[in-house]
């Protein structure tokens, strides 16, 4: 069944789009990431114009994040205070990111920078998580607890001033790294067209030492607002949000996310992290590989951005 998309201005197969949404929704429900880093490349692969794919991806992320966040809210696994501070940094970061985005688009190097950023961050984050989760699994095999939280062990981050108490996370840390992390991720999110969960989650676990049980909920809470800001900004400046496309993705995504969340509960924390690490590394490797293989068609046509 084909449907003409009013903003993307082309005809797509409804079931392919819903299926895409469901597959990504399953993964996002399982790992607690928005899935933007998967949906945007998939849409571009399906011939949706990149500008529409990036913006509409952000719109669909809201639905899956909201649905997921509700589940974590019921389990009281969201640290609203930590989420709000991250969000404050994130909104500042995304406004800078939007500016970088349009500057890169003007000089025609957006694709390249996006790909390199994806490769660097997906590779780095995926690699770190892979190593850590394997170590953690080894430990649990040897009889110890799988997840080791070392409250006594502090790193340099805990020496910074402007400390703030985050009850739900049982943390007492400086707001500087929290704001900084939010800013960095907000900026990356705008440039890469993603929510940033795949960077946020490991950063919260390994840098801020937030307990794993509140990490996903808090990250989802934060992503809802970042993605909403991106959506409204993109709609207002570039007119690239396709509501019909977004709705099809959401329907698939919401359904997929429910099953993904169930599957996620059957797995241990370290197993989840290992799988997420492999997924992240896989996407990163694919994108990195593409930078080096000669393209079938070296020429591309773009319509200049109206400024």
């Amino acid at each position: 069944m084909n449907l003409y998309l009013p903003i993307a201005e082309l005809s797509v197969n409804v079931f392919v789009i819903i299926g895409m949404g469901a597959a990504v929704g399953f993964l996002s429900g399982m790992f607690g990431v928005g899935g933007g880093f998967l949906i945007t490349p998939l849409l571009i692969f399906y011939n949706i114009p990149p500008a529409v794919a990036v913006a509409t991806g952000a719109n669909q992320v809201i639905a899956s994040s909201f649905s997921g966040a509700l589940a974590y809210y019921k389990r009281r696994a969201i640290d609203f205070r930590l989420g709000s501070v991250l969000l404050a940094g994130g909104l500042a970061g995304s406004s800078v990111g939007v500016w970088v985005f349009s500057a890169l688009r003007r000089i025609g190097q957006l694709d390249l920078v996006v790909s390199i950023t994806y490769v660097v961050f997906l590779g780095g984050v995926g690699g770190l998580m892979l190593v850590e989760s394997i170590q953690s699994m080894r430990r649990s095999k040897n009889g110890g607890p799988g997840d080791v939280r070392r409250p006594g062990k502090h790193n340099w981050i805990h020496g910074l001033p402007l400390k703030m108490r985050f009850h739900a996370s049982k943390l007492y840390i400086s707001v500087i790294p929290v704001l900084g992390l939010g800013f960095l991720i907000g900026m990356l999110a705008a440039v890469m067209g993603v929510g940033g969960g795949f960077i946020m989650i490991p950063a919260m676990i390994y840098l801020l030492r937030v307990p794993t049980n509140v990490v996903i909920g808090t990250s989802l809470f934060q992503i809802i607002f970042t993605a909403a800001a991106t959506t409204i900004l993109q709609a207002g400046t570039n007119m690239t949000i396709d509501m019909v496309l977004a709705f099809l993705l959401m329907v698939g995504g919401v359904v997929g996310a429910q099953f993904g969340a169930q599957a996620g509960r059957k797995l241990r924390g370290d197993q989840l992290r290992l799988l997420l690490a492999l997924l992240v590394l896989g996407v990163g490797a694919r994108l990195g590989f593409e930078l080096f293989i000669p393209p079938d068609e070296p020429f591309s046509i773009t319509r200049p951005v109206a400024l």
Binding site: N59, I62, A63, S67, L70, T231, M243, A246, M250
Partner: peptide
């Protein structure tokens, strides 16, 4: 409107 649609769908 797009944001509201997403929230309603998610909910």
């Amino acid at each position: 409107a797009a944001v509201l649609l997403a929230i309603v769908t998610g909910w």
